[in-house]
């Protein structure tokens, strides 16, 4: 096995162009597991940890550009206020060791339906910046996941960064696991309220072949908030609205039975998480008005 160690982004892209079969390695928390279990036997590894640019993040044009190699630990400690949903999701990931190594880009490239970054990125409406020796393009998060552990990147492409708009409203993230830490999601739910766009974002994890949104739930809630003037009044949400939102989120899922949980449980859990997340997010929204924010 060859070990390619580009020192710059340009070198990395050249190496990937020359060896499209090279497997990039960032935190290694997926790749090394694959190697250890013998599931992965790549001819080449492409080590991205020497490319300093990938470890940066900036804010420009109302959005965070999160470099591919920023760890979860840094998302939590440095970006908790700018990327609240993603930071909440990051807090649920693995253990301190995993959060120190693991990256959002690694989670994206793996594209596991259970990856915890996905529901938060879907709810926030992120974009994935991918690059190759041929150039750079932006893949909307909605188009990124193409199948179980498959994504929309070409063989010669690498993830450069993830773009996430700064929040205009509260975000929430909830994940079910069968223990209280260090657990793969049985089902997960991300929610973002976008008062600036008068829109609602959702993301469902571990309950369909790919991470996905719940468009009917988003439209329903955005419609209710609009038609009842709730964005402005910040009045209490009717119980029925909360319940219906939960039902619509659950209805968007297409889960399976597996060792981690039953399909029925996943659907049930999603409806509960969606209701609770909405309740918390709405309470935050109401409070933020009181605090004049």
């Amino acid at each position: 096995m060859d070990f390619l160690q580009p020192a710059t982004w340009a070198e990395a892209l050249e190496a990937k162009a020359a060896h499209p079969d090279a497997v990039p390695i960032a935190g290694g928390t997926d790749v090394m597991v694959g190697l250890n279990f013998g599931h992965l036997r790549p001819a080449r590894l492409l080590d991205l940890t020497r490319v300093a640019d990938l470890r940066d993040w900036q804010v420009a044009d109302g959005a965070v550009r999160l470099g591919a190699a920023v760890s979860y630990a840094r998302v939590i400690s440095e970006l908790g206020d700018r990327l609240p949903g993603l930071a909440m999701a990051s807090r649920t990931i693995g253990s301190p060791q995993i959060r120190n190594r693991g990256t959002v880009a690694g989670n994206l490239a793996t594209a596991s339906p259970a990856g915890d970054a996905h529901p938060a990125l879907l709810a926030a409406g992120a974009g994935v910046e991918v690059a190759s020796a041929r150039g750079t393009r932006r893949i909307p998060i909605d188009d990124f996941y193409t199948g179980v552990k498959r994504n929309a990147m070409d063989d010669d492409e690498l993830i450069a960064a993830v773009h996430v708009a700064l929040p205009s409203g509260p975000q929430q993230y909830s994940k079910i696991g069968t223990r209280n830490a260090m657990v793969i999601a049985v089902a997960a739910f991300g929610l973002a309220l976008h008062p600036d766009r008068r829109a609602v974002g959702t993301g469902i994890g571990s309950a369909a072949p790919t991470p996905r949104r719940a468009p009917a739930a988003e439209e329903f809630l955005a419609g209710e908030l609009d038609s009842s003037g709730l964005w402005e009044s910040r009045a209490e949400l009717p119980e029925a609205t909360i319940a219906r939102f939960g039902e619509l989120v659950a209805a968007a899922a297409a889960p399976i039975d597996d060792v981690r949980g039953s399909a029925r449980y996943r659907v049930h859990a999603l409806s509960v998480m969606a209701r609770r997340a909405l309740t918390w997010a709405w309470a935050d929204y109401r409070n933020s008005a009181n605090q004049g924010a």
């Binding site: 909440m88 807090r91 649920t92 929430q172 993230y173 909830s174 994940k175 079910i176 696991g177 209280n180 830490a181 657990v183 509960v272 998480m273 609770r276 309740t279 918390w280």
Partner: peptide, 16 residues
């Protein structure tokens, strides 16, 4: 959250 069922996975703030 660490004292709650589900821990930092943020599934309840006391509900249920």
């Amino acid at each position: 959250l660490r004292d709650m069922p589900g821990g930092v996975s943020n599934t309840t703030h006391g509900e249920g």
